[in-house]
Nucleic acid binder design. Structure first.
Lengths: 343, 343
DNA sequence: TCCTGGAATTGAAAGGTTTCAAGAGATTCC
DNA sequence: GGAATCTCTTGAAACCTTTCAATTCCAGGA
């Protein structure tokens, strides 16, 4: 059901001007350059605004001034703490610049993402930060062509057409697997999917090269594919692992994100297994829940808030500096070792 | 550093009209009443829009049409999955109505909340949904006076001045404690704070009355006050519990939310305790991580998504129906018993 | 050929704000 | 006392879209 919207009109600058006995221009000056108006006048105008419940019409302001004071972030998954932390970083940075941030959530859906993007362009936001469903989508490039800066967060694709801010996922995968190799594991599972997701692909790639470089048997690193990056999928993966005959069963698992790792952890413990004795687990993202898990989770930490802050800065730079050149910022991940892999 | 914003102007309806060789009005008709324009003309106009990269200026549209197509939700804590789930419910409902949703996060800060509210009014959103830092704040009432509908989410205060959508927290507290009483616990801790937060107060009140009505010693229900509702605080509370001499130590804990409960759970298990044998735990909210905890957490479930959906519907009703009366919607919580309290 | 009626298109006005050149008032200096 | 200089204030134009009454166009009927 689409409801009928009714226009709502309140007091305008004109009403305020009339009430305060001044001209439009003066009211505008009170709003935008208060130092230019005589204190006594200013006070009268402010009084009138208060009395009339005046609220400046942002649409009209923007229309005339040609500028908006907002940034937007389109998250890939609003229920994954990783992304809400990135969003927090963006908000903090934007606030320092007196910008507000619209947080949107595509929830992994193409059409939802598209709807948000369309709307944000129409809002004339200063810049769109996005962790896209598909970073190669032509639509993103089209947005830039139409004049809105786009910064890709947490992906390195499309590097020539956008600024990107990402963490080196290949390195992250390496770190995790090098750690497991050092612990002496001969049989490791990589849990994650679908590989259509770039993050998954890169982490797997890093894992594989570290594994091979350590001289391990390539076939002893198995890829346990999942349909998504959720706790539920992690539990399902745990069941599949448990179903393997003991000698073919991995002694360690590296999960493509912490939600998977938490699911796997829960399933393993619930089935009477011991972590890390029976199965060492390393996750990815180091969300707050990782450290708080029953067996604190080893994880590859990404500088989430900094990721967001930097992305905001880049978008703003692109919006304001005509000579802007696209940049690729790559942060280094860091392995945090906790009980789930420490013996 | 506040950066200098530069206006960004693209093609306008006027440009499109010129390119397509039609008048302004026709372009507008293509946008708003396509059925009224002859297919061949429409096609020509659409072609021109595409070529010029035309993006409708939402500010101008709003100015003239007097109506916006957006709703906003101001969350109390963007990092608590409970609120992101509520947000999801709002988004789903809004999308069905072809509205977009601005998600904001006050992160518990008064000033941040204030900044968001100010901005949202200026955006002329159709309605503001909010879980406020302080539901009694006069500012909220002022917003309504100025013409923007406000719906309070997850609080029942201010019931006369706003629509509210909430869950019966007193009942939720009762359910949790009745369950613990049934299990035979004689010594129970309520973990949560600060009591300035209404949710905490209500849940404690429900807990206390259930306790007393069951004929238990009032002093045997201790309130373990925390400074906030986070995992970290939960762990700290666990340490304090563990420090108590055994005979004065509660055998069960009811936590004001799941984050606290997860922290408490982790600390307890980490210190070698057994849940629920040494300490039964019941949380509140039933976030996804609760079921996924190493010892699946009993919790009081709130219909999060429905809470959001209903709030959105109320805001819209208030925005569109001149004869609108404020409503108080109260949902019933539901106890979900899992291993953490099942013996 | 002319008229009629419906369909398609047009053009001007309006909506709230900001900007800026120009005007008014007050103050200072010779 | 008058000119020059400030400090404040003003009024009109512009931003982009939508709306709606008026106009044009066209096909069909007389």
């Amino acid at each position: 059901m689409v409801s009928q919207l009714v226009p709502r009109r309140g007091a305008s600058v004109k009403d305020v001007a009339a009430a305060a006995g001044v001209s439009l221009g003066t009211v505008s000056n009170v709003l935008n350059r208060p130092e230019r108006v005589r204190p006594s006048t200013r006070e009268r105008v402010e009084r009138a605004m208060l009395d009339l419940g005046f609220v400046r019409h942002e649409g009209a302001r923007q229309l005339r001034a040609g500028t908006s004071r907002a940034l937007a972030y389109v998250m890939l998954d609003g229920r994954n703490p990783f992304f809400t932390d990135v969003a927090q970083g963006i908000e903090d940075a934007a606030m320092a610049d007196e910008l507000s941030v619209f947080i949107c959530n595509s929830a992994g859906s193409d059409s939802r993402e598209h709807a948000h993007l369309e709307h944000l362009q129409q809002q004339r936001v200063q810049g769109i930060l996005i962790t896209p469903v598909d970073p190669d989508s032509a639509f993103l490039a089209e947005i830039v062509r139409r004049g809105t800066p786009v910064v890709i967060v947490d992906r390195t694709r499309g590097a020539d057409r956008f600024c990107t801010v990402a963490v080196d996922d290949v390195l992250g995968g390496r770190l995790a697997v090098e750690h497991l190799v050092e612990l002496g594991h001969e049989h490791v599972a990589f849990v994650g999917g679908p590989t259509a997701i770039g993050q998954v692909r890169d982490r797997l790639e890093g894992a594989r090269s570290a594994w091979v470089e350590a001289g391990r048997d390539p076939d002893a690193l198995v890829h346990l594919a999942t349909a998504g990056l959720t706790v539920t999928e992690g539990r399902a993966a745990g069941e599949r692992l448990a179903g393997l005959p003991r000698r073919r069963r991995p002694t360690a698992a590296f999960c493509a994100n912490d939600l998977l790792a938490l699911g796997l952890l829960q399933q393993t413990i619930g089935a009477g297994g011991d972590v890390p004795r029976d199965l060492a687990i390393v996750g990815y993202d180091d969300i707050d829940f990782a450290a708080a898990a029953a067996v604190p989770l080893s994880s590859v930490r990404q500088p989430r808030q900094e990721l967001g802050a930097r992305a905001a800065a880049l978008a703003l730079e692109e919006a304001t500096d005509p000579g802007h050149m696209h940049q690729q910022v790559v942060f280094q991940p860091e392995l945090v070792v906790r009980a789930s892999s420490r013996g």
